[in-house]
Simulated scan of single mutants.
Amino acid sequence: MLFSVNGRTLPIAFSNLIVAGWTGRNADAIAHHIEELAALGVAPPSTTPLYYRVSAPLLTQASEIEVVGADSSGEVEPLIVQTGAERYLGMASDHTDRALEAHSVAMSKQVCAKPCATALWPWAEVEDHLEEIEMRSYIFEGGDWVLYQEGTLASIRPLTDLIDGSGLADLAQNGAVGMLCGTFGAIGGVRPAPRFRMEMRDPVLGRTITHEYDSVSLADVA
């Protein structure tokens, strides 16, 4: 994959991909997200946070993904990328099959592509103000873009804690690693949409990363 880092092109071949779940810092926020997914039949986690390993090729910069059926949806998340000793912050969507999630969260993570933005920020440029970084997502609903998620990284567990908990640095010794780091509650509830737009804004350095993608539903043939 080719990423843009401050105007230069950085090729990265991922060996591992992790999806960190249940990463809210506020206990009430975690409970809210658990209730949100319980309404869809999803069992509560055994512990928090959890680190789901998924296939590295699921990470994609495509503007269109294919999903089975009409029960999947996206979630904007910070994306940590580590290649060798170099670390970056990016943005991705943990697109998830909600119907399968009621059976197995791990399987639901594995069956959907994880769209990500093409831009990365060097870790050294953001580590002193990570909690001020803002993230938002929008879904195309009723013929218009609707705000779907909104928050700052201050509502997610410290990213350094997730790095330590996942063993990301150790994994990176054998190739580049990406980790999606959790998300915010959905405004109006978790629901599918044919188009998903996300953005990550750094208010300190005055820059924004954006990405948008369409979900094409394939027939769920029994």
Rank of each mutant, 00 (worst) to 15 (best):
E101G: 02
E35L: 13
F3N: 01
G189L: 00
P11F: 02
A29N: 12
T183I: 04
A31D: 13
V42D: 01
A119L: 02
H32F: 11
M91L: 12
W22R: 07
R98T: 12
L159A: 09
L120I: 00
P78L: 05
K114R: 05
G74E: 08
R157W: 01
L205W: 04
A106T: 14
L37G: 05
A186P: 04
W22P: 13
T118A: 11
Y52A: 00
S155R: 12
H211W: 07
R201D: 05
S166R: 02
P45E: 06
A39F: 05
V19F: 02
P203F: 03
P44S: 14
N26Q: 12
I34A: 03
C181R: 06
E35Q: 15
E75S: 14
D71H: 15
A113N: 06
M198Q: 08
S55F: 11
G167A: 09
L100G: 09
E199V: 10
E64Q: 14
E131I: 06
I139Y: 11
T23P: 04
D128Q: 13
H211I: 05
T47G: 06
H129N: 10
T83F: 03
A13G: 10
T23W: 06
L37H: 12
G188T: 13
R195W: 10
V221C: 06
E150V: 09
W123H: 07
N26A: 09
G24M: 10
R201M: 09
F196L: 08
S72G: 10
W121M: 05
Q82D: 07
I30F: 02
V19K: 01
A27M: 11
C116N: 06
A169V: 14
S15H: 13
D128L: 10
D220R: 15
P11R: 03
A219K: 09
V204K: 13
L89P: 05
I65G: 10
L130S: 05
Y52W: 07
G167C: 08
G151H: 07
R201Q: 11
A154N: 07
A27I: 14
D144R: 14
E35M: 10
Q149F: 12
E150H: 13
H33C: 09
R191Q: 12
G165R: 08
N6K: 07
R53G: 02
V54W: 01
L162A: 07
S104I: 07
A193L: 08
G175S: 07
T23G: 05
P45H: 05
H103I: 13
Q110V: 03
G178E: 01
G185Q: 08
L10H: 03
R136A: 11
T23Q: 06
E86K: 12
S46A: 15
I187L: 15
